[in-house]
């Protein structure tokens, strides 16, 4: 029990961000029209590509001789970038199509 309370205490700012972000996430998309469901999903998909930052940190602090870390980190950077770039470009193409239809 003490360990849990200690964890919460030490990370209280992150936990506030966590809770508030949950509400913000729900609030900002609550009025989305159904035609925008797929582009919104795709846009959100690109945003969670922010995990690339973790990959950059792993890669950036991997020691020179630590090949498993280097290779896995490198792969993670590639995959994360795919998620970000592919995600935003696909979303843009979807929305472009949306505009033409109107």
């Amino acid at each position: 029990m003490d360990a849990i309370i200690t964890f919460i205490g030490e990370n209280i700012q992150l936990i506030y961000i966590l809770i508030l972000s949950i509400f913000v996430g729900i609030e900002v998309i609550s009025k989305v029209p159904s035609a925008l469901h797929t582009p919104l999903m795709s846009g959100a998909n690109a945003i969670h590509g922010v995990v690339i930052i973790g990959a950059i940190i792993v890669m950036g602090h991997a020691e020179a001789g630590n090949w498993p870390a280097l290779i896995l980190g490198f792969l993670a950077v590639i995959l994360g970038t795919l998620n970000v770039v592919g995600g935003f470009v696909v979303t843009d193409r979807m929305l472009e199509m949306f505009k033409k239809k109107k």
């Binding site: 966590l18 972000s21 509400f23 729900i26 998909n45 945003i47 969670h48 930052i53």
Partner: peptide
């Protein structure tokens, strides 16, 4: 990472 991730988690 936390904000971006959780935003997508809840909005998603």
């Amino acid at each position: 990472m936390l904000t971006g991730g959780i935003l997508v988690g809840s909005a998603g």
